[in-house]
Amino acid sequence: MDLIGLSSCLVPVTALIFLIYGIYKRVNVYEAFLEGAKEGLQCVVRLLPALVGLFTAVSVLRAGGILDDLGNLLSPLTQWLSIPSEIFSLSLIRLISSSAATSLLCDIFTQYGPDSFAGRCGSVLLCSTESIFYVSSVYLLSVGITKSRHTIPAALFATICGIISAIVLVRLAFGQ
């Protein structure tokens, strides 16, 4: 696992570059670090109400089971396109929660295996998309923007392109 070994170096190497460059430029590194850390913590505290709102909405939505209904409702369409219905559910959940999407991907791996069409598709999909609802809420609420204009439509368009390209690419590369 060269890649994973390499990526474990990323955090310490990045921190080291910043630290050495700071010392080289005669920055008071410890004071700067504390100042930044204080701002970071204040930031988390400021985000707390938004996080509570977000997590409540997402967990209520998932508990209500509407997402499963939607998946079942559209299953004729996904069948016609010969896309596993799990990929559709995964795309929906991906929009609202990263952790829920990851656990659904694990379910797909258990059921079909990571090297199945659904497993590969789901893997590419999670790599190339972002949980729009969560990230946009955090960023917008942190600075008090209420009108996001074309942000959500454009981001949704990007995500849909990501989902379609994931399915098409896996089909092109591995068949099925």
Binding site: F18, K25, V27, A32, G36, A37, G40, L41, C43
Partner: peptide, 15 residues
């Protein structure tokens, strides 16, 4: 987040 904000601050001050 606090740790990275601290590291970023060093980078910011160093240009």
């Amino acid at each position: 987040m606090a740790m990275w904000s601290g590291v970023l601050k060093i980078g910011e001050k160093a240009g």
